[in-house]
Write a protein that binds this DNA or RNA. Structure first.
Lengths: 358, 358
DNA sequence: TTGAAAGCGCTACCAG
DNA sequence: CTGGTAGCGCTTTCAA
């Protein structure tokens, strides 16, 4: 059984294929009556315009690539993807995912093979640096590059990035202003091959500490642990090993802060009673555990990146090609001034519920 | 500046376009030498085969659709998507996401518009029931349908589902065997328009309770709360409202269990001292909070669903068209026999870490 | 407002 | 092993 094609519809509605085509893509050029008949016939024949043919004819691919370090399943990457997809999908584009452009091998595979060339209308790069040589290679395929949290603005046509350095600076300042004077920064070892934007957070921490240390007593240290499933446990042990347990901890990401908060409590260090804790991301469960954190909105960043890409594809320069957003300090319950010793309050709200008893 | 096409490459390497084409797609049909020259030329010209043209020619679309209730950003949906994408992407397919096929409106928009018809080679349906009428409509477009956690097997050509009913039955039995006799099941109100597979878990809980209640004293109840951001808080309040606080709580999902565990502790109910708790999913932080839970692996389910789809697309029936997987009880620390009153132990492992002091 | 026809870039059949 | 060529389904210009 052959699939219905545009000419079947044309025949069945007694018009030419040009008219059928127009009925779908330029409704205004077809008389109301004809158009209605065509649409009805098409529907009953289960016909739809072929995207491949349209794409081929148009010279566009209606496809974009999203390059990510690590997996899509991390909170940040999922949000970015969902944000991009929400606008690109609506605009008629598919988004092709390329994960793990992080190891030297995958990276070189990708950039020498360049599977995307001639097959995408734009490429998004999330959370890592494209090196100039790679950028040039990408650029040669005449496709706009838009960066999301790329460490530099240099190798893309547009970008949107969170100010990681400043964000962690603010978080650290917050702890310092609370009177904390023995700080630790818990983070994962940087991936040397990738220059992830997240590493700028360390710089922010260090800057705040150095600055404060000039005018008052301040101890601080960086606790950097190997990546991997047990990274939070590693940090936990490392912190417990310190001769003086810190009275303030900044975490590179909430996924570090949350396990730390929970497990430190099990080891006798309760926050904010014994120390103040601040995270970064405002990712899932940050509110549940009442974590004070720097909020960023990667979904929105994805959407904005997609808009920029769309502009670029259509030949206009985007309004703000390179945009920086500032994360916001969300004050919850994991931080407290030096004196306070309150336990964390979980916020309880009124509720409605069905109770079914057996 | 015109884009390089297959004929530029043909000309530049002194062969015909057929040969160029074959060099890419049927390397074995081209002499080693010729092929190498072509590939080199193509590379230097930044040429690549056009997927749109290939698709058009082949009659396939090299695109599949993934229909989801709710957002892709939930843990389950992300995992499924990532699993599907990992195999489909490798096989040369794009996956198109259609989120929120859950409200009556979105649903009818989708199924009357059917934006996918003629434009995908397969459709995946995740976590909700396609009704027979919709299935027929989908089927008419001659595209295999593969279900993931669909409540029934009837409206798909292949499927892979977790046994939600049995899973929750096992979880509940576990609590009963521990000697718990006052059980609560915490869940979200079902979405009436959607018949999500997750609702079968309730049935499993009820079955275990009814069964046990015939031979011994057992109180049980279902605490069902409205969906939405505050669902765990609603459940919390509802539980605290009960005249006798339960000594065993089953949660529909870990995202219910985890906040409950944390917030109940803040309200004086510590698990497993005061009650036993079991979740469902083994999603992020379940291990961190030491939650006993039923594990499922949606990433793997996605991969398997994708393999089935690939078989179907290529005309072979998949090995097991309809597959059911059984979730696995992961014993951690949130459950205990009636007597025990130990506090939760977080597991601490040895570690290596760099300590950098400022 | 509609129709005829060229051609997007590729693949596959058929010849050589 | 290689080349010529028809045609996949659509859009678009040009004519009517």
């Amino acid at each position: 059984m052959k699939k219905t094609g545009i000419r079947d519809v044309a025949k069945a509605s007694g018009v030419s294929i040009s008219t059928v085509s127009r009925a779908f893509t330029r409704p205004d050029l077809v008389s109301e009556k004809t158009r209605r008949k065509i649409l009805k016939t098409a529907d009953s024949l289960d016909f739809n315009i072929s995207r491949s043919a349209t794409a081929l004819k148009s010279g566009q691919t209606y496809r974009v690539a999203l390059l990510m370090n690590e997996e899509i399943t991390s909170w940040f990457n999922t949000q970015v993807f969902a944000g991009i997809d929400s606008v690109m999908h609506k605009a008629g584009y598919d988004v092709d995912l390329f994960e793990h452009i992080d190891t030297a091998k995958n990276r070189s595979d990708f950039f020498t093979t360049l599977p995307v060339r001639c097959n995408v209308d734009a490429v998004f790069v999330a959370s890592f640096a494209v090196d100039p040589h790679e950028a040039k290679r990408l650029r040669r395929i005449h496709v706009p590059i838009v960066g999301i949290n790329t460490p530099t603005t240099a190798n893309s046509d547009a970008s949107i990035s969170i100010d990681d350095e400043q964000g962690m600076y603010v978080a650290t300042r917050h702890l310092i202003e609370l009177g904390r004077h023995n700080l630790a920064y818990a983070c994962s070892d940087p991936v040397t091959s990738i220059n992830s934007s997240i590493d700028a957070r360390t710089t922010g921490f260090v800057r705040a500490c150095r600055e404060a240390a000039t005018t008052r007593d301040l101890d601080w240290r960086i606790v950097s642990v190997p990546r991997g499933k047990a990274f939070a446990d590693s940090a936990l042990e490392a912190l417990l090993t310190l001769e003086d347990f810190p009275d303030g901890i900044c975490c590179q990401i909430d996924m570090m802060a949350i396990p730390l908060m929970i497990k430190l409590a099990g080891r006798g260090h309760t926050c904010p009673r014994d120390y103040s804790l601040v995270g970064f991301d405002d990712s899932p469960y940050a509110d549940t555990v009442n974590l004070t954190t720097m909020r960023q909105d990667p979904y929105l960043m994805g959407m904005k990146a997609a808009s920029k890409a769309l502009s670029l594809i259509n030949g206009h320069a985007p309004d703000h090609a390179h945009e920086t957003v500032t994360p916001e300090l969300i004050l919850r319950g994991s931080d407290a001034p030096r004196e306070t010793t309150d336990a964390i309050q979980t916020d309880a709200r009124p509720t409605q519920a069905n109770i079914i008893t057996g």
